[in-house]
Amino acid sequence: MNSPWLLMHPFLQAAAGGVLIGLASWLLLASLGRVAGISGIAAGALVPSKGVSTEETAWRWAFMVGLVGVGAVVANTMHVPVIAARPYVLLVAAGLLVGFGTVLGSGCTSGHGVCGLGRRSVRSLVATLVFMGAGMVTVTVTAIATILIAA
C-alpha cells in the first residue's frame, strides 16, 4: 500500500480504516439519529423528494461536503495512486447501474453493509449478499471474457 507514514500491514490498515468508517456511522447515529447510508444521503441531497424540509436536505449536503472535501485532502496527504483511465462507456454504464440500483434497492455498501448488518437487519443481509454476489459474478465474467479475447 502506498502510504509510508502508516507503516502497517495492509490488512491491519484496512481494518483500521474500517473502524474509522464504523465510528463515523456511530457519530451520525448518536448525533442525528440517522443511518450513514451514502447512496441515501447523496440521493436525498441531490434529488430531494417532494415535501422534504430544507433542514433534511441541508444535513445531507453537509455530510457530502465533509466526505468529498476530506477525502481529497487525505488522498493527497497519503499519496494514493490514481488508477489508470478506463473506457468512458464502461464508467457511464457502471455509474448508471450503481445510481439506479442503490435507489431501487434502498442502499449500498454503507447503508446495507456497514449500518444494516450492524443493526442485524435480515433485509440488509440479503441485499449485501446479493450485491456482493452480483459484483463477484461481474468481475469473474469480465475476467473470463478478457482471457478469451486475448487468446
Partner: peptide, 8 residues
C-alpha cells in the same frame, strides 16, 4: 443492478 455496476 448495484452489484453489477460495482463489479464493472
Amino acid at each position: 443492478l448495484f452489484g453489477t455496476g460495482w463489479g464493472l
